[in-house]
Amino acid sequence: MPLRSKHSKTRTMVLIAVLVAQAIVLSLVERMIPFNFNVPGAKLGLANIVTLTAIYLLPFRQSFLVVTLRILMTAFIVGSFSSFLYSLAGGYLSYFIMALLVYLDFKNLGTIGISVVGAVAHNLGQLLMAAFIIQNAFILGYLPMLMLAAIGTGIAVGLTVQYLLKALKATRLFQNN
């Protein structure tokens, strides 16, 4: 869905910057919400709203840039080196799987399905990184619990993206297709 404008390069750059800024703010807001599923490590995954929106709105290279910048900048602002490794593993794994489904035009899944897959992939990525860091694979045993939480948050994020895309299309900033 390319931007319809002669100045599309500038527009694309601005759009990427806005998406990255939104993702960072959502990550920061999420840290302030004392949200607890009683599952260690479960999160809302609000930044995933921006990742998935970027995948739908932008071509691969640009959405990849959005995710990469989001991970780097969030780490610089609030994270430590280890939290950076976790968001790298979770963020990229969920991004690549969601991107694969969207760009290959896998029409059977809607935004909600893709978002749920992305949320589960995010957990899997983080647990694999954790297993690697502590050199102990038992931690993957947390996956079923985290998966249940991810289904819930994934549906919420997917619904948000669905409404967001509808609203963005109404702005006519993007070409219809």
Partner: peptide
């Protein structure tokens, strides 16, 4: 929500609950 979305969610939930049960 598409039909496949619902199937996917149900399958994931069953896999998660099943493995949780086996682990317990």
């Amino acid at each position: 929500m598409k039909k496949t979305d619902i199937i996917l969610i149900v399958v994931l939930a069953v896999v998660a609950l099943g493995s949780l049960g086996i682990m317990r």
